[in-house]
Design a protein around this nucleic acid. Sequence first.
RNA 1: GGGCGAUUAGCUCAGAUGGAUAGAGCGUUGGCCUCCGGAGCCAAAGGCCCUGGGUUCGAAUCCCAGAUCGCCUACCA
Length: 554
Amino acid sequence: MKKRLCSLIGNSIASCMKGDVFPEAPLPPFEVEPPKEKAHGDYATNAAMVLASAVRKNPRMIAGAIVEHLEDPRGWIEKIEIAGPGFINFFMKPATWAELLLDVDELGERYGSSDMGQGKRVQVEFVSANPTGPLHIGHGRGAVVGDVIASLLSATGHKVSREYYINDAGNQMDTLGRSAYLRYRELLGEEIVYPGECYQGSYIIDLAREIVEKRGTEFLEKDEKECIPFFRDYAGSSILEGIKEDLRVFGIVFDEYFNESELYREDGVRKILEDLEQKGFIYREGPTLWFRTTGFGDEKDRVVIRENGEPTYFAADIAYHLNKYGRGFDRVIDIWGADHHGYIPRMYAGIQALGYSREALEVVLVQLVNLLREGKPVAMSTRSGEFVTLREVVDEVGKDGARYNFLMRRSNSHLDFDLEIAKKQSNENPVYYVQYGHARICSILRTAAEKGFPLPRRGEVNPGLLVLPEETDIIRTIDRFPELVEGSVKALEPHRIPFYLNDLAAQFHSYYNKCRVISEDRELSLARLFLVNCVGLTMRNALGILGVTAPEKM
RNA sequence: GGGCGAUUAGCUCAGAUGGAUAGAGCGUUGGCCUCCGGAGCCAAAGGCCCUGGGUUCGAAUCCCAGAUCGCCUACCA
């Protein structure tokens, strides 16, 4: 609808300029938005006001001219008013709104999708937790945000790859191996002083027990150094498999798992550093190599090769991002925990030194999660290994509840996740409100079919009968869904979708309580069934983007 | 000390590129099916949008300063 109006207004302004009503001027961007106040019509534009300074005329006079020259060949508009400092308010005919449903119905599950991205290739990297322990609740939020951003991108015509980066090269993997090794010996009766820097979680003991069962005591006779690689690889791959399984249960499947160790093949990292050194971005200080990130606005330079000769994670990250661009992505999006925000400037510096623009990397920060139970914080400490795993949460509250709750806040703000509320099957839990609406719609359609009202098709329905204000309101909400998806993608803000769903569900529930869909009036019943089906369809599409199910019964 | 983010109803939070009288959920209070699903609906109460300046036709939104809170500030991973 908005697009239709924009073109009418644009044409009118053009004919005003040609007709010398006001001088030719470059058309500044103007808004056509639904005003908050209903008395101001379905849409309002500030076109006259933004034109005022350009053509040096009074905004109200310009508005008058625009209205006078506006042509409406299809008769969409009921009336137009000029208000306030120069707003033009448009009142559409109810039937104009209702006709939009025909398009919605025809698009079906494609409604809300677009080709905005024009097939651009986008990589979204998220989670990327080290395989040294199971995913915990904090990873869950980043996982869903990344997954839904990826879904939004693919709904808008991007070609998306979901990638998980595995830090499998650092010495924390050796620590993992050593942890399992020590627990192994402990299980076999040795007195062990378990070091604080080793992983504390009980899952290490479980892994050690598995190894005891499979391999017996064979490692007791060998030297620790000989044993570590086995324990490291066994624990690492076993934990990674667990992570993949937890993600799958959570509804997340990656296209690509990228191993950090690949970057080191054929001395890849070192070659990149040499190249950067030649270009003057890197300098030496004894055995240490420093990256001059301050040249790109970072607050201090960063080490890439440590005094002991080992590269830092930053060095690997530079190589990794170069690798990403080398794979031909048009856009690269990283989802990071907010505790990494200090890395942003140096990462920007890194890619700029590599010759890419700052815009080539988009970083979405996801704030940490406060896990609560009945309003009280759940104690968590990674050090002691006492954390609540993602799997536990998903098992307790369900995939839908967990995903929806993670998505209800802007990524950038802290999130309280209350286990008891997320588990409640009541109005306190927002996901049920929406799902219930969808189930209710399905129920109406079932009942209607039983009573001899099959879902009408295009051509069998007269949308002109949908003239109640409540009906037009719902159609308005349905109509803005595609813009909402686009806006959500542009801003990389998935939380807008749950808010939208809540609005849509509220309008539907209210309508349901006020008006009967199925009545004696066959024509009207068919029209309303058609409307209600469009609501359900929009809900399904929106929930689909969120990876939350749209149940037909609850 | 420096950097980043936050600050909007009792609580948790929305308010995209500045727009007309500030929004939702929860909680509180009071109502609503002989009926297509009451996991729902309706109504009421509840606000110095942290403070002070500035920018302009117009500011919760943009700029500057300050206050409070959180996070970051490793040759850790």
